[in-house]
Simulated scan of single mutants.
Amino acid sequence: MEPDTAPVRFDTKIAVLLRDDLESWQRLNVSAFLVSGIAAANPDIIGEPYADADGTAYLPMFRQPVLVFAGNKNNLLNMHSRALSRGITVSVFTSDLFSTNNDRDNRAAVKSVTGDQLDIVGIGIHAPKNVVDKVLKGARMHP
């Protein structure tokens, strides 16, 4: 049986939008947290486990690419609003979460502020491609 070499196409898109004024360590931390929420809410987008030629097993990962974008504070607020207006549940990371160190305190920090007052530094989104493109219109790929 010949291996399947047809291009793989996806109906959905996974994207992370980060505020462009974050430090490098913050970008990495925020990205990891945001995609963990996407994975938890969408187990069907996780691929099969990996194994090397020696038989060592590795954890499965997303079965499709994760695109990372950057924007300023206003971009994030607008894109957050666009996503919510389309009924998309997003993962969110606020500046307050840099001073907490556990899930309970993270959730409490987000809950303590109304949605329009969140100091959003990153959002994660998984939705049909055309919807993600509309939500992220105006964002640029992360450098």
Rank of each mutant, 00 (worst) to 15 (best):
I125G: 01
P3H: 12
D96E: 15
V16W: 01
L59M: 15
A53T: 13
P7N: 00
N106S: 14
D54A: 07
K129M: 02
N78D: 02
A6M: 13
H126C: 03
V110T: 11
G124N: 00
S95P: 05
T114C: 12
A108T: 03
K73P: 00
H142F: 14
R140D: 15
G55A: 09
I45G: 00
M79C: 04
A40T: 06
L77C: 05
L77E: 07
L22S: 11
V131F: 10
G115N: 09
K129D: 03
L77W: 03
L84V: 14
I38S: 04
T100G: 07
K73V: 00
L59P: 08
L136Q: 09
R140I: 13
M79D: 07
D52Q: 04
D96C: 11
D133A: 15
L84Q: 12
G87P: 02
T12A: 00
S24L: 15
I38L: 09
G122F: 04
A41Y: 01
I46H: 06
K137M: 09
H126T: 00
A32F: 03
V131Y: 05
A51F: 04
L22G: 08
I45F: 01
D133G: 01
S99C: 13
L17T: 03
N106F: 12
S24I: 12
K13E: 01
M1P: 05
R82N: 14
I125N: 06
D54L: 08
F98C: 10
F93I: 09
P3M: 10
F33G: 04
V113W: 00
I14D: 01
K73T: 08
V16S: 02
G122K: 09
T12R: 06
S99R: 13
D21F: 07
H126A: 02
N42D: 10
G122D: 01
Q64H: 11
T12S: 14
R9Y: 10
W25F: 10
M61V: 09
D119S: 14
S81C: 06
R19M: 05
L97T: 12
L118F: 02
V92Q: 07
G87S: 11
Q117K: 15
A57D: 13
R107H: 12
V132C: 05
A109W: 05
G122R: 12
P60G: 06
G138R: 05
S85P: 10
D52N: 14
P43S: 06
A51K: 08
D54C: 03
D4Q: 11
N72M: 03
D54Q: 14
S85T: 06
I38Q: 04
L28E: 09
I46M: 10
L136M: 14
G124S: 03
H126R: 01
N101H: 15
Y50F: 13
D103A: 15
I38V: 13
S24V: 14
Q117A: 06
G37A: 04
G124T: 02
Y50S: 02
Y58I: 11
V135H: 13
L18T: 05
G47C: 11
K129F: 08
A83M: 11
V30M: 06
T56Q: 14
M141A: 13
A39M: 04
T94R: 08
M141L: 13
E23W: 11
N75V: 06
H142Q: 08
P65M: 05
R27P: 05
T114P: 12
A15D: 11
R104S: 14
R104K: 14
V113D: 00
M61D: 03
D44Q: 10
F69H: 00
